[in-house]
Amino acid sequence: MIRVVLPAHLRTLAHVDGEVKLEVEGQVTQRSVVDALEARYPMLLGTIRDPATQQRRAMVRFFACEEDLSHEQPDAALPDAVAKGDAPLLVVGAMAGG
């Protein structure tokens, strides 16, 4: 099971507490994880990536294993620890403002 931590606003929108656990078929990548996330929680469509371009929203970041993976290719494999469920993929609203 893949573990995903959503930011507070998206947890509220999806009506979930704590981590989300997902079954992901095939290679575990940003794209496959977000595909599974949107399939389970359709209210999240468009909030993490643009629905038309499928690009990550500029102020959404992907962190895992103390690394910023936001600029990795969407189809690049996520770290083994994420794929094995040992570490969560963190979906983060970028810090902004004063």
Binding site: H9, L13, G46, D50, R57, V60, G93, A94, A96
Partner: peptide, 8 residues
């Protein structure tokens, strides 16, 4: 809407 998560 927000600048982070777009339009709902």
């Amino acid at each position: 809407s927000t600048g982070w998560f777009g339009q709902l």
